[in-house]
Design a protein around this nucleic acid. Structure first.
Lengths: 110, 110
DNA sequence: AGAATTAATCGTAATATTGCAATATTAAGT
DNA sequence: ACTTAATATTGCAATATTACGATTAATTCT
């Protein structure tokens, strides 16, 4: 085994899990925070911001892109990466919804 | 390699990554949703709710617990698991903060 | 006490992730 | 065309995750 049984879960559950998984690494959190902080997209120096080798950073960027958390386009010989706001909103709304439901709970045993 | 270099990142980055990682599996999302839905904590039948074997579910529960997303206490020969609202709030606030910062951005190249 | 019930743990196989050196690719500058 | 600069890909070793059968531990019921 070792492979996740995605086929047994709903599309929405898998979608949220994919986003969460992509953020389940401190380097990728750091990338998102950096992209948020610089208030711009062209970030050729993102490698210098992280304590990891260039291929490793490139791989993390790829995973964020695959998950739909960042968008990128070729911009000369540099790359323009941006956060996809919709993905962040999706997460915010998801956890917001859970919070609301939890707050409306009557029983709280633990 | 294969081990995450947590020591190079901030405590906050690691904390968010830990929470996100724990939710980075559809079964664990399904568990959280189930715990939210039943509006109670005693959920001995959680195994029947998931398309996975009992040891696998137990393992997922353990990971959610280690990440601080659920709390549990022994309750007879069943177990009482609850969502830890603070963890969900942490995530909600985190993504809310990013959303806000992104919305305030001037440039939007992508 | 003995049986039944429920959840955790152990052991293990299959697969995925992480990280990096080496190399390739791509585009800009000369 | 040649060099430089920036990012991507490949290949691989180390480690982590996922899943489950078998077993164990703890509690309840009779």
């Amino acid at each position: 085994m070792g492979a996740t049984k995605t086929e047994h879960f709903t599309g929405k559950q898998n979608a949220i899990a994919t986003l969460a998984k992509a953020l389940g690494h401190p380097a990728r959190i750091a990338i998102i925070e950096y992209l948020t902080r610089i208030d711009a997209c062209i970030c050729s120096d993102i490698v210098n911001e992280l304590p990891l080798a260039q291929p490793t950073v490139s791989q993390h960027l790829k995973e964020l892109k695959n998950a739909g958390l960042i968008k990128g386009s070729i911009e000369g010989n540099a790359i323009c990466y941006c956060i996809d706001e919709k993905a962040i909103e999706k997460l915010q709304n998801y956890f917001g919804g859970i919070s609301t439901k939890l707050a409306a709970r009557k029983d709280q045993c633990c």
